[in-house]
Nucleic acid binder design. Sequence first.
DNA 1: CCCCCGACTTGGCGCTACGCGA
DNA 2: TCGCGTAGCGCCAAGTCGGGGG
Length: 572
Amino acid sequence: MTYCDIKKLTAEKREAKWWLEQENKKQGDRWTTLQHNGILFSPEYEPLPPNIMVKYNKKPVKLDSKNSNNSLNITAEEGAVFLAQKMEQDDRLAEKDKKRKKAIDDPVFTTNFWNDWKKVLGPNHIIKDLKGVDFSPVQKYIVERSNNKKSAKKAMSKEEKKEEKEQKDAVKDLYGYAVIDGVKIPIGGYAVQPPGLYIGHGNHPLRGRIKKRIQPTDVIINVSKTNIPKCSINGKPCKWGAVVEDHEVTWIASYRHPLTEELTHIFLKRDESHFVCSSDQEKFEKAKKLGENIEEIRKKYTKDLSSSKSETRQLATAVYLLDVLAIRPGTEKNEEKESDTLGLTTLKCSNIKFDIGNHVTINFSGKSSIEFKKKFKVSSIVYKNLQGSCEEKDKKKELFPNVNATSLNGYLKTLLPDLTAKNFRTWKASSILQEELDENIPDPDTPTYEKKLMYDRANIKVALELNHKKLGGSSDRVEKLKEKISEYKEKKKNAKTPKQKASAQKSIDLNTAKLEEAENNVATSTSKVNYISPQIVVAWCKKAEMPIEKIYNKASLTKFIWAMSTPSTWKF
DNA sequence: CCCCCGACTTGGCGCTACGCGA
DNA sequence: TCGCGTAGCGCCAAGTCGGGGG
């Protein structure tokens, strides 16, 4: 039973132990008792067969496959396997997308890799540079190994499959759950990150570096101290780095990311955690409140657009853009350790172009290096303010020099209590969906797939607004879909029965929607899961007599269980 | 007061299990 | 029943934002 289920229990069932625990909780505490069995460490390295070797200057070299006693806790051979795996993945993906860049051709990637691998090889190793190393025997071997594994799995008997599943389930039973205030809740990803290469998004400065193997001593466990889990690594006992009992946080374990040194946490599974459920609920309530107050907020910042104080003017102009574009706020970044991506408060003058008729074009590389580009019209006062910031031809100059994430959020709080910049994205997404669905309330006896299409189209609009894009090339997919559509159109023409005709039409409709998504390179899942209030969807489904399971998968149905009783008349 | 960092949400990608059409 | 395409899931990176410490 999850928290969300418990919330649904009626008042007379409140004698449950869980409720007692909740009432006895101190202010700020997230839990009273927390039990779990610790976390799972990466398995030891499995050496390659003795005859599998890299070549250095055309001569085979057997790399050490046993000694991992170095700063990265990996063997020399393991490092070679990491790169060979990456090369294999690149080769495979390059077949689909010819333009795709390979890591091995990227000097930053290879230099980063070499500098780390050198540490593992040691100072007196025969291998003196990466250029002379031929990884292809290792690459070839790992492909064979993976193919063998696949066919072995196919050939497995029913009993063997069952046994394998039981073994997996046993590990999951041990590590996959935490018991919080007496309620069993799944843990999301209970294994520490295995050692490997750091890839990153876009042109990350650390790409190609080796992430070391995490050891038990690197890990902090958060748990009720009366029930400290045993530390075990590959069947051997070990010692946790530390054990804490912090009632104010929801994580089970934490450790430093081996390269960025950021804390990495092991949390509860997001779809089933009651902490996530209730913060989600709050998030959408806040977004709704923003919508209810938007006119008043607009009035306030419009007045500030012509403030005599430059800082206030900048803040108001930034909020105007936030209101129109719903872009991310943008936080300061460390250029040596992070990609140089931007957000609203970190935009430079080089990211804006002034066109005639109060039109501006904003163009920048956002989260995960995804391009944002939009041309739109602004009010003349906003146009003047933006131009004012960029009068001098210095392109490196910031668009809002006196605004940062903190001051922006500070200003937003003067417009509406608790308002933050990212609330605008949630509000915009949800209100667009509400509007779209309001215009598309199907007759209950419309075919289900048509109702689904109405939802999907609205969802695509939201994803476009939030700039949720797929990075990979989609031209292949677009062509295929176009072909398919004309095929079905032909079929429809030649249909003999009305049933055949309807079935062809259905395929046309479905593939047209897919085409729309592919042509725009748009990804809908993020907005569906994080930005669109499920209450809107539930209300619409009830009105349209549309089964909600056609829209949400099992995980989302669990995460949004709190919204399922929303009445059909509900409005965002 | 400011900036750094802890905790949590958001986000795209690749793999795989599964469902559907031929 | 078989092969194929894709939804969904897990992985891990990359954001936001407030609070704590200097």
